[in-house]
């Protein structure tokens, strides 16, 4: 997928550059773009690793486990099939919590573990069951305590207070999750009646 997108961006740039008589700017941009990207990355390295370090302190202190326990009642309502499923529910809670804490690196392996547990109880079907769909939709809509990555980028581009968008991000992502789960419930019902 990305092969086509990246290729398309470059090809369009060269063609439009030629049409608009801006090929000189395009060649300049090719050189500058790479340098800018490295500058952005250097600007991000410090803050991203500082924040990951802080989050690891709370993780090692058991914050993730505590939060996961607090979320369990809510999540077991969303995944009634696995209410008493032990390891499935644990994996689901761990993944959602890791996402919330912004521990992206550990969230994905935990998510895959949850999917594997669900597939084990799915009798080897190649069709996704309702719980899997709810789980994937929860993962495609992100709820994060602190949107670190975006804030660091905003900081790099001169935002006075990079985290001032926090309430907006919170409301927007929560709304996305609500709509996503509501859609799942509606689609599930339609399937049953149709």
């Amino acid at each position: 997928m990305l092969d086509y997108i990246w290729g398309l961006l470059m090809i369009i740039s060269v063609i439009c550059g030629a049409i608009n008589g801006k090929l000189f700017d395009v060649s300049q941009a090719a050189l500058d773009g790479a340098a800018n990207a490295v500058q952005l990355l250097i600007g991000m390295l410090g803050m991203m690793s500082f924040w990951s370090g802080l989050m690891n302190i709370s993780d090692e202190g058991g914050a993730t486990a505590l939060l996961s326990k607090a979320l369990a009642p809510v999540l077991s309502r969303l995944f009634p099939d696995y209410e008493n499923g032990g390891s499935v529910m644990q994996a689901i809670c761990a993944n959602i919590t890791a996402n919330f804490m912004g521990l992206g690196n550990s969230a994905t392996p935990l998510g895959i573990r949850a999917m594997k547990e669900m597939q084990r109880l799915n009798h080897g079907s190649t069709s996704a069951n309702n719980s899997m769909i709810r789980f994937v939709v929860l993962n495609t809509a992100s709820i994060q305590l602190v949107p670190t990555f975006v804030s660091v980028i905003r900081k790099n581009y001169g935002a006075r207070s990079p985290l001032d968008i926090l309430p907006c991000v919170f409301v927007s992502s929560a709304f996305g999750v609500i709509v996503g789960i509501s859609c799942c419930i509606l689609f599930e019902k339609r399937k049953k009646h149709g």
């Binding site: 996704a128 769909i133 709304f175």
Partner: peptide, 24 residues
């Protein structure tokens, strides 16, 4: 996620996920 467990038919996953994105 689906690739990891060999699911081929993802049913309404994409529709729900894209609607959630649009809502956000």
């Amino acid at each position: 996620y689906y690739g990891a467990i060999g699911i081929k038919n993802i049913r309404h996953t994409l529709a729900a996920a894209i609607l959630a994105d649009l809502a956000s």
